[in-house]
Structures are given as structure tokens and as C-alpha cells.
Amino acid sequence: MQGYLSLLKIKRLPTTWCPGCGNGLVIKALIQVMESNNLNKKNTVIVSGIGCVGRTTGYLKLDSIHTLHGRAIPVAEGIKTANPKLNVFVVSGDGDLLAIGGNHLLHASRRKTNIKVICVNNRIYGMTGGQASPATPKKTVTTTTPKGNEFEEINTQAIVTSNKNFFARSTVFHLDHLKKMIKKSLENKDFSFIEVISNCYPGYGKKLGFTSNYEMLMDFKKKFENQKNKSILKKNELGFLK
């Protein structure tokens, strides 16, 4: 197993995240890929938006920028366009990237800017206490949908792939797969979007009847399967489209 301490700010631990949160797993996977692919302090910048996942930038020993709510993608585009040699990662959540940042996602994917967007999708606004996000499934009870969410969840995959960009789906349970997907995205020179399904027990899982973060991870194990056809990626499948 590779270490992942070189880029982690050990002094800042423990993180502000709840025990069992998937965000830590995403950091681990990201750092391990960075180490194996020679992405380092010299050539890599990390960008995040607002929300729980947005705090990621603070735990990495890389030049990082904590941006406005929803605006991580345009800030990343600015960095990449002005300095194309840099590898630019965006790490943020579903509320940030898909709701308030939805328009920017649309246009960055149209421009095909070579940035890697890692969207940690816990299907809820975790930091503000569990409001519905665009990724919250229909009928889910949240603090802003007390009688169940009346809308369908957003189809991010369709948005990203409509411009023939790289889209991958993984979960925080399938760490090796997640690393593979991040590596795959590095081969791609266009806009890349990796949706990482994550767990938020206090904000989301609790209301669905789960009793712990562990149970939520086990649920990912049960629900998701590997992609069967290279040209199709179903909602419950792990894999990528290019």
C-alpha cells in the first residue's frame, strides 16, 4: 500500500468532519493517485467550493484556493487557462457544483477546459443541516422537503457527456475503483467529472433509516455494480464514459 502522508497536513487533523464521513476517504484516494502519477507541489493546484467537501483544500499540502459557493469551476478554469502547465483539481459537493454552480458546470463542460472535477455527492446539503440538494432522490424527506422531495434528481451524467467529456462514477466504499477512475481522468485532456457517491449519516442517512455511516457504506457495496457495457453507464453502475 502506498503512503498518503506526503501531501496531507497531519497537524490539522482531526478534520472538522463528522466521524465516519466519506470525505476523508476521497482525500486518501486523491493523494494516493497524485503520488503515483507525479502530481506534486510543483505542478498541482487544488480548488474547492463551499460546503463540507469544500474544506478539503485545507488538509492538503498543495497550493489551494477556497472559493465562493458554487464558483469553484470558473475559478479553476481561470487558473488552468492562465497557467496551462498546472494540473487543476476541483473537489466539491453536489450542492455546490450542481445547484448554485450548475450553470458553470454546463459551460465549463462546453468549453472542455482541462480540469478534473471531483464531485463528492452525498445527496444532501450536509453543512447547513440536511436540506434537499439537486442530487436528492425523489420522495426523500429532508428538512426542506418535509413531505418528501417532489422533484427528480439532476442528471449530471447527461450534462457532462453531452459534450463528449469524461464522466466517471464511483463510491467512497469502492476506494480502489475510485483511484482507478481518478487515474483514468488524468489520461483525458478535456473536462473531466468524477461523481463520488458518499455518505452523510447525520444529514441524510439517519432520515432514511440507516443507523450508522458503516451501514451506508455497506449499502453502497450492495447497490452498486461494475459497468457492464462500455458505452452505457447506468445509475447504479460504477465506471466511466468517454
Binding site: G95, A99, I100, M127, T128, G129, Q131, T143, T144
Partner: peptide, 11 residues
């Protein structure tokens, strides 16, 4: 739209 410290009002 969610933002602390006014979430209780939206909710």
C-alpha cells in the same frame, strides 16, 4: 436557499 445562520427560517 440554505445558508447558515438562517437555515431554520427556510426550514
Amino acid at each position: 436557499y440554505p445558508i447558515t445562520p438562517q437555515n431554520e427560517l427556510t426550514e
